[in-house]
Amino acid sequence: MPSRPAQEDHTVVLNANGLSSFYGNRQILHDVSLSVAQGEIFVIMGASGSGKTTLLRHLIGLSTPNAGEVTLLGNPLSSITKPKLYELRKRIGVAFQGGALINSMSVIDNVELPLRQHTSLDDSTIRIMSRMKLDMMSLHDTENMMPAQLSGGMLKRAGLARAVVMDPQLLFFDEPSAGLDPVTSAELDELIIGLRNALRMTVVVVTHELESALKIADRVMVLAEGRIVALGTVEEITQSTDPRVQSMLHRQVRDRQPVGEEYLDHLTEEDDI
């Protein structure tokens, strides 16, 4: 399926072309292509096992796809050297599902880490900048707490604060609403929209939450069993006639039952060692 650049700005900041990925003999991604324009909120949506986490790891260069090419801020990742990749990563932010805070460091130390590692700012400037980001996530009371003392939602927000402390051009957010109550999850959605509007950040969100996806997205990509089943604006997705998209929109149980002979094959299949 061809990807369409967003209307307001045509600079492509992230592009993936024909990504295929295997885990052992199992194919996780089948020829996935996408393109994200400057300033848009792009949501990758899919159920668990749809390959969305693998796709995210390819997009940020944590793992290399078996086929295809990712171009991040104009740099093809397949041929990039480690120092250049690290230079590139200073311009992106990644917020992980569980926050992924370093558990031996306090919240504020975690948020300060990128600044301490990559800038020569003095301690008080670093502290002020980190506090601003924590305040933005309404976490000002927690700065001296350890990650183990925080709730799931707080961890996510602290992880987000750390991801944006360097004011990245491009932000990736893995499962912002997984495991959160509806109110906290709605707050995070507001935060993401706020980041885009206030800081002109491009945001790529990976989620399985339909409601949150439709609320924040400019464009949505729906992934099922490693294949793109729909890609377009929110209206296009909601009006899609694709049965898989429809079943997702109406929260139906996935129809997994293979038919007749195929099912028999599956039952009689032998392990080919």
Binding site: L62, L101, I102, A163
Partner: peptide, 25 residues
């Protein structure tokens, strides 16, 4: 155990993504 927990909790990936080399850090 500490390094293993950091691996399963994506903390090592997070370091990578912050451009902090986990081998050095």
């Amino acid at each position: 155990a500490e390094i293993g927990i950091m691996r399963t909790d994506n903390q090592i990936d997070a370091l990578e993504c912050m451009a902090v080399d986990p081998y050095r850090y």
